[in-house]
Design a protein around this nucleic acid. Sequence first.
DNA 1: GCGACAG
DNA 2: ATCTTGTCGC
Length: 227
Amino acid sequence: MAPRRDLVPWPTDPADALALQEGLRRLVVAAGSPEPAHVAGLDAAYSTDGGTVFGAAAVLVSPSLGFVEGATAAVPATFPYIPGLFAFREGPALLAALDRLTCRPDLLMVHGHGIAHPRRCGVASHLGVVTGIPSVGVADTLLCGEAGETGASRGSAAPVTEKGEVIGCAVRTRAGARPVYVSPGHLIDLAGAVRVVLQTSPRFRTPDPLRAAHRLAVLARNTAASR
DNA sequence: GCGACAG
DNA sequence: ATCTTGTCGC
């Protein structure tokens, strides 16, 4: 799948962002079963004044989950937080961090939703289409749809549906902890997305790539704050 | 019209 | 997301 970097830069006006998202949604492919070696976790942190977004990308190699490389980028926050348009707020910083990596990861694991989104085009799908790299969305709470009851043991999953359409899965990545919500971003199906999440979260609720990315983002923010 | 609403 | 200490529980 060819990259669509031509679909950036990012609009500043919510109405324009919505229009762009409506176009992007038609390019999303929630199918495929990649077996990624290099998984890049993508997350962001914000400056205290909320004026800067620190995007981070952390690459881990499968199946050892060893750290390979990381990168961060500080970008001015030019778009407000609007549920459904999250990609336009964090996307620029995440993409900037991704551009600073030495290697091209085989899969992007994004903190946020993929197709479990009102228009089936969450930040994970958005970044997948823009980069042409298979992507998965992992979120802490639902944005839309309803989740079935998840079994108590690690590995159990229950579908997230909206109007009868399966758009994701609630996945128990750790016994005793709330499930995470997984959905395909781009170039991967739901089963594949759940598989990758479970393979990368052997011990903690949050998959290792996202934990690493979170640490990098917070570190970058605190480093910038203390100078 | 009234809620709900990723980070 | 972020402002914020200690505290309850496994």
